[in-house]
Design a protein around this nucleic acid. Structure first.
Length: 225
DNA sequence: GCCAACGTTGGC
DNA sequence: GCCAACGTTGGC
């Protein structure tokens, strides 16, 4: 699958290149252009007509340099923080299941920013969705590592969202620690027993249940195990 | 760098 | 539609 990466676009300018992470994001989001349609009068906290259908997500990105078609796909949470408004477009996702999750994301939903394919994999921080799914322009760019010649402009195959930095985790939560809990929870029926990070290991964009999300947050307050 | 897991491709 | 070959993800 894909790795996502991001690009830039920011509102108005098309700059280019930034790092792309493998799975994640890029820089410049597209916010500028149309203001997302859904902005109507809703409060920022739960939109969805009253019912809070908000979900939680985990998005993987590679924090260490790696060339893909000659382009560095690195994109760490520090790279996100360095973007204008700390917003980046999460492009480069080329897996249908992950894409469908991107399309299901709603404004203000939170996601863990996960560092993958690196020395120390794990959850680095929290981000939120600031622009819902729109066509991932990188699929049409021939020189982009995520170019997809089979996708047509009038019927784009791939989507991206924009995310904004919220905060770093109070302490980095290593994959190994999450795995220890996952294994214990499989026996005890604890909250991480079905965590997608382990049950769908290759998915770069994945959902978390509120119980999973809260349990991970609770680990911030504990000593590293 | 190795390699397990797993998604995709393409022959038939 | 099956499935073997192949490619990718990503931990270790």
């Amino acid at each position: 699958m894909p790795r996502p990466r991001k690009r830039l676009a920011g509102a108005a300018k098309p700059d280019r290149k930034g790092p792309a992470g493998k799975r994640t994001k890029t820089k410049n989001p597209g916010e500028a252009s149309t203001k997302v349609k859904n902005s109507s009068p809703q409060t920022s906290t739960s939109q969805n007509c009253g019912k809070n259908l908000s979900k939680y997500w985990l998005m993987k990105s590679e924090p260490e340099s790696r060339l893909e078609k000659g382009v560095d796909v690195k994109f760490s949470i520090e790279d996100l923080k360095a973007q204008p408004k700390q917003i980046a477009g999460w492009d480069g996702v080329r897996n249908y299941q992950a894409r469908n999750f991107l399309r299901a994301m709603k404004l203000e939903e939170k996601a863990f920013f996960y560092h993958s394919n690196c020395k120390e994999p794990g959850i680095a921080g929290l981000v939120k969705i600031v622009k819902e799914a729109y066509p991932d322009h990188t699929q049409f760019e021939k020189s982009n590592p995520y170019y997809d010649p089979s996708s047509k402009e009038d019927n784009p195959k791939w989507s991206m969202v924009d995310v904004q930095f919220v905060r770093m985790m109070k302490r980095f939560i290593p994959l190994a620690e999450l795995k220890t809990h996952h294994q214990a929870h499989k026996a005890t029926g604890g909250p991480l027993k079905n965590m997608a990070l382990f049950t769908h290991q290759r998915l770069s964009v994945q959902p978390l249940t509120p119980e999973e999300f809260d349990f991970v947050l609770s680990l911030e307050e504990k000593e590293p195990s």
